[in-house]
Amino acid sequence: MKKILVADDEMSIRLLYSEELKEEGYEVYLAANGKEALDIVNKVPLDLVILDIKMPEMDGIEALRQIKEKQPDLPVLLSTAYGEYRQDFATWASDEYLVKSSDLEDLKSAVKRYLKE
């Protein structure tokens, strides 16, 4: 079972994403900020990470940088409530930039693409 980490400070988003991804048959880990996310990345051999950008303590951009330093091959998706940054000096390292939407089809298809399913 593929392991996915979802990091978002919004509890409701964490819940929604985990429910949806579990339904797709993934094992889902949850973190409320960048720090928690890094802890999990360090402990668990993950297949994919979904990061929110704006989070307390450590934001998604910093978390992305640190993850890519250690595990450049681990796919990291940025999922944000901001407008469409797309590419930016800060987000260039991510594999995909997704704008949050209640329709999770985009997210799910991106996940599938990076897990090569």
Binding site: E10, S12, L16, S102, D103
Partner: peptide, 21 residues
């Protein structure tokens, strides 16, 4: 608007997402 959007989008995504569920 961009501040608002950010604040509004998260709850919206949850509401919409759960409604779909």
């Amino acid at each position: 608007a961009s501040g608002m959007a950010h604040e509004i989008r998260n709850p919206l995504v949850s509401i919409g997402g759960f409604a779909r569920r």
